[in-house]
Simulated assay, not measured.
Amino acid sequence: MLLIIGCTTGRPPDDLDRVFVEVRPLDYARRLCRLEPMLERHTCMTEVVSHYREVRGRDRPAQDATEGPFVAFIDDVLYRGRYVSNPFAAAFTVSDGATICRGRYSAFAGDTKPIFRVHCSDGRQGQAQIVLDQTGRNGIGRLSMANGMAGDILFGDAAIPEGFR
C-alpha cells in the first residue's frame, strides 16, 4: 500500500512517465471544455464533473476497462473515437469528420515503451503517450505530431460525457 501512495503523491496530472496519476474530475473538464465559448464553459465543466462522478460510482463490466471513448485535441481541433487495449498492446482511432488518425503500440511487435505511433489519413505522423487515472479505466495524455502540432488526449467512459463522443 505504501508503494501505491508513493506513486501519486505530489505528482502533477501531466506526469506521463508514471503508471497512473491522480486526475481530478476538474482536470478532465478543463481539457474537454477549453474550446467552449467563455459563456458556455462553466456549464460544460459542470456537465463533465457531474458525469465523471455519476459514472465512476457505477458497477461496470470488466470490458469497460479494455475499450471505450477516446478524444484527442490536435492543434485545437476535436477528434473523437474509440480505443481498445490489453496489458501489452493498445490502439485508438479518432476523426474530426474529415481526417482519421490512428495510434498503436504493441509489446508483441517489439515496442519497449507504451508510446503510440500515430498516423493520420492526411499524411501527418507523430506519437502519443497516455497515463491512467487512479481508477485504471480513464486517463489523459499528450499527442505530438512531427509537424509541430500537439494536443491533449482524454479517454474512458467516466472522463468523456456523451456530448464529446
Rank of each mutant, 00 (worst) to 15 (best):
residue 34 R to F: 12
residue 35 L to S: 10
residue 36 E to G: 00
residue 36 E to H: 05
residue 36 E to N: 01
residue 37 P to E: 12
residue 38 M to E: 14
residue 38 M to K: 12
residue 38 M to Q: 13
residue 39 L to G: 01
residue 42 H to M: 09
residue 42 H to K: 12
residue 43 T to Q: 14
residue 44 C to K: 05
residue 44 C to G: 04
residue 46 T to D: 13
residue 47 E to R: 12
residue 47 E to A: 15
residue 48 V to T: 06
residue 51 H to W: 14
residue 51 H to P: 04
residue 52 Y to F: 15
residue 52 Y to R: 06
residue 53 R to A: 01
residue 54 E to P: 00
residue 55 V to W: 11
residue 56 R to M: 07
residue 56 R to G: 00
residue 57 G to N: 12
residue 57 G to K: 15
residue 57 G to V: 02
residue 59 D to E: 14
residue 59 D to C: 01
residue 61 P to K: 03
residue 64 D to V: 10
residue 65 A to T: 10
residue 66 T to M: 14
residue 67 E to H: 15
residue 68 G to E: 05
residue 69 P to L: 09
residue 70 F to H: 11
residue 71 V to S: 05
residue 72 A to G: 00
residue 72 A to Q: 07
residue 73 F to D: 01
residue 74 I to S: 03
residue 76 D to F: 01
residue 80 R to I: 05
residue 80 R to Y: 01
residue 80 R to F: 01
residue 81 G to D: 09
residue 82 R to P: 03
residue 84 V to I: 14
residue 84 V to H: 13
residue 85 S to G: 06
residue 85 S to M: 14
residue 85 S to L: 15
residue 87 P to D: 09
residue 87 P to K: 01
residue 89 A to W: 04
residue 90 A to L: 07
residue 90 A to C: 07
residue 91 A to D: 12
residue 92 F to D: 08
residue 92 F to H: 06
residue 93 T to R: 14
residue 94 V to P: 09
residue 95 S to P: 02
residue 95 S to K: 07
residue 95 S to G: 05
residue 98 A to P: 00
residue 98 A to Q: 13
residue 99 T to P: 04
residue 99 T to Y: 04
residue 99 T to F: 08
residue 100 I to Q: 14
residue 102 R to F: 02
residue 102 R to N: 15
residue 103 G to I: 08
residue 105 Y to V: 09
residue 105 Y to W: 15
